Amino acid sequence: MRIAVLADIHGNISALEAVLDDVSSRGADLIVNLGDCVSGPLWPRETFERLERLGAPTVRGNHDRQVAAFDSTKTDASDRFAFLELSEAKRKVLGQLPFSLQFAPGVVGFHATPTYDDRYVLDDMVSGILVRAPIDKIVRRLGPSEAKLVLLGHSHRPDLVRLPGGTTVINPGSVGCPAYFDPTGQAHVSESGTPHARYALIDVADGKDPAVMFLALTYDHEAAARRAEINNRPDWAHALRTGFMPRATN
């Protein structure tokens, strides 16, 4: 069985279309979506409608939850933009997405962790940058699991870890947002280092470790960056062009 794993699209329909075209050319038995579908200053409505037509099994990300439950005192600019672009019915769909799913026998997925949609399993913050967490932390954060394969997103950082108990944990990276700054808690950045659209293809066979391909695709990221600029988000524009967050200058 071949599974195409998408995560963290963040309203970037240009990147999404590039990924779906690539999936079509390579073939997949199943496409799954790990959430954070539309939040961002790009094309929330168009992305929602494309995903609706796709009909892929999808779990709810923290930004899907925040767009659905808009709070003007807490919601950030990306969530606010998506909230205003989506109808009430579309926001309701986002809010009702399941927290986690079993996509296939032995294959489970959620956005971030088994119990929280806004924390990390595979990642730690070191000097303000996300890096791979120690294996004992990963095991503790994931908790007991009978799954052979765990799929998660949230950090936008592609990664693949096989745990001592035999479970393989995969983050496919972000389809549409190659870098971000999170000011909450311990402020940090996630940076992929390039503007590519990312996803993963996983070949699953009984009795074998999964074979995993991490794909990084070119697409018209400049058009996405210009869209971010039009919507007054130069930080997003820089991230979309470079895969890095802008650095403060004195």
Rank of each mutant, 00 (worst) to 15 (best):
V38C: 10
D118V: 01
I13A: 12
S145H: 04
P195Q: 01
F81V: 01
T115Y: 10
R80Y: 04
D209R: 04
A133E: 04
V212Y: 14
A224N: 06
L30W: 10
P158H: 07
S78T: 00
I9R: 03
K92H: 12
L217H: 11
S174K: 05
I138H: 12
P134L: 11
I13N: 07
A237C: 08
M1K: 06
V67N: 07
Q186S: 06
E222A: 14
E229V: 00
P172R: 06
L54G: 05
H156M: 08
L217W: 15
L215F: 07
A228T: 00
R140L: 12
A28V: 05
R141H: 01
Q66D: 12
A147R: 01
Q66V: 05
L20F: 11
H196C: 09
R226N: 02
L84I: 00
T75A: 15
G193H: 10
A179C: 13
T73C: 14
P164F: 12
D79P: 01
V139W: 07
N250M: 08
M213K: 09
F99M: 10
A223R: 13
F83W: 14
R247Y: 04
R65Y: 10
H154N: 05
P57N: 03
T218L: 15
T75L: 14
Y180E: 06
F244S: 02
I129H: 15
I138T: 03
I138L: 15
D203T: 08
T113E: 15
A133V: 04
T47S: 13
V212H: 11
D159M: 08
F214P: 00
N12A: 12
L163M: 15
A187R: 13
A112E: 10
G176K: 09
A200D: 06
S192W: 14
G173C: 07
A147S: 08
E46F: 11
D182K: 09
D76P: 06
D123F: 03
L16I: 07
G40K: 02
L240E: 03
V108C: 11
V59E: 09
A200C: 11
L152C: 06
S192V: 09
D159W: 06
P114G: 04
E222H: 11
G40E: 05
D117I: 09
A28K: 01
G243E: 07
S127T: 01
L84P: 00
T115K: 14
H156K: 06
F110G: 01
P195N: 01
D71I: 05
D209Y: 05
R241L: 03
A147G: 03
H156W: 04
P178S: 06
D220E: 13
V131R: 14
F103R: 01
T113A: 11
V38S: 10
M245K: 01
P183G: 03
P105G: 03
D76F: 10
F214K: 02
A56E: 13
G153C: 11
G166V: 09
F214D: 00
R26D: 01
G165S: 07
F48W: 10
I3W: 11
E17A: 03
Y120C: 05
K208A: 14
A187N: 04
F103T: 00
D206L: 12
E49Y: 00
